[in-house]
Amino acid sequence: MFEAKLQQGVIFKKIVDAIKDLVKSVNIDASTSGLSMQAMDSAHVALVSLKLNENGFKDYRCDRPITLGLSIENLSKILKCAGNDDTITLQTDEEEPSSLKFFFENQQASKISEFSLNLMSLDSESLGIPDTDYSSVIQMSSAEFSRICKELSSISETVEIETSKESVKFSVQGDIGAGSITVKNNQSDKDVDRVDLQIDQPVKLTFALRYLNMFNKAVSLSSTVSLNMSEENPLMVEYKIDDLGSLRFYLAPKISD
């Protein structure tokens, strides 16, 4: 028996909206500790990793580990029927479920929707991602980072991110010209302005902006984002989801000449 009830169903809607341009189908693994999901884009350049802890749910029960193979497109269609204020419950009582039940309830419990989504059997192509001690970590406003990526992608397809003790520099070079945006440490008490740099080792890495712009669809999940980098390593972009878990994106760097 598996049942997970999320009080703020809108979070689940936002998660699916954030990943639907990147991955087509995913395996959600349910266990006693919660839900986890890892999936890559078709080119295996980017990876999304979701972890939702059981104690972040209003109700959570998972008698034995199960894997739920979902088409993101079909999941989106079902979730469109959920109101932003609804609770969302996932439920199946089969051991090898062929479908997953969804219940959407409004606040007054006066409207209850029930859907059943057919499940897919997907071969799991998961990667082992070691816990990495990143040498450069940048915490900043997710809206600000999203804006920087959007603005710079009109000049070039790739952005070079270079960190130093007191600042991070986003540089682009394109046919029309070049540009850079330098962001300094800023302990402002205004979320949108605060920038927190923890630079043990400076890094200089280049990434494809179209992936970063896809990751930034998660901006509605958290007002802050962290960029985690080490030389010769994929970038890890993390959106923490208040007392529920985190949505992480990994992006392999470009081969710099």
Partner: peptide, 14 residues
């Protein structure tokens, strides 16, 4: 995309 690394270069399949 020829000038783009792939994640398999950094992480093992499990």
């Amino acid at each position: 995309v020829e000038d783009q690394f792939n994640l398999a270069k950094f992480y093992e399949e499990v």
